[in-house]
Design a protein around this nucleic acid. Sequence first.
DNA 1: GAGAGTAGCTTGAAGCATCAAGTAAGCGAA
DNA 2: TTCGCTTACTTGATGCTTCAAGCTACTCTC
Lengths: 159, 159
Amino acid sequence: MTETDTARWLTADEQRAWRALAAVLVKLPAALDAQLQRDAGISHFEYMVLAGLSEAPDRTLRMSDLAVFASGSLSRLSHVVTRLEQRGWVRRERCPSDGRATNAILTGSGWEKVVASAPGHVETVRQLVIDPLTRAQLGNLREIGRRLNNRIDPDGALG
Amino acid sequence: MTETDTARWLTADEQRAWRALAAVLVKLPAALDAQLQRDAGISHFEYMVLAGLSEAPDRTLRMSDLAVFASGSLSRLSHVVTRLEQRGWVRRERCPSDGRATNAILTGSGWEKVVASAPGHVETVRQLVIDPLTRAQLGNLREIGRRLNNRIDPDGALG
DNA sequence: GAGAGTAGCTTGAAGCATCAAGTAAGCGAA
DNA sequence: TTCGCTTACTTGATGCTTCAAGCTACTCTC
């Protein structure tokens, strides 16, 4: 790239910050996925689905709410829930109060799966994200994340 | 999840920081991919490959070096370069000094592709990452990223 | 200089994500 | 009560990623 572009390029400082973030963006999800795949045989997205259900009242959530929680499309969730159903961890049920909606429900063995895989996942998060940062940096990270999310997705698809 | 696990759980502050980062991890790559796909018809990974070559001497890089640069597996890169070759942006050449190695070379039209798509990409990075942060936060971000990358991948597969 | 071992890359198959299209239920107005 | 629109979800096809296996070319040892 030449330095004479008309577009606003990044300064050296800006580039350093961006490159650091970009590397995290690529490697951290890969590391989290790898741990879950290795220790529990599930993807991070599948974990999010199971964990989301495990925290919901009656361990039940509408597909569309669950999709928002897991930050995925309804289509992706539908395919994933199909697989989780085949593995016996989730079942579907037509929503009684709205015939269009489908509830996803965590089964007993799905609950056990979450209980079994959560500690390892949390431990990984702690090792890779929490422990290397100071308390002040954790605060900074939270505020930085808040601002970025606000910009990326102002309707904040999260509670 | 119960509160009585023996594993170290996350405190409220830690969770807030982690959730903020987790949301960025999911949404920022999606936003960057979406912009490049929409405006240039390429994925972020393809962009990284083209951009990597565009900055290399003779616009040429060994496949394995390029894979490290783009933070992807050699296999993934090989498939992607095949597609980029079909689109006329890259060509392969047996490395003269080591017959096992393959050099990927950016073609003229590949160079034009990078020149055409870079400003839009940089502008998106600026809008989503740089602009919403203060100068101090950019500094914090850089140091946070540095620490996380150090932990995730101590052999820092980056220059 | 031959054989064993390694490095660098490619390939094919299997699995997963995404996209576009389709179905079915609810809702609103005439 | 029926027509059209919207919501909620599912499905099938396509394309990308990953994984395991394979193929050369190089290197080292004897």
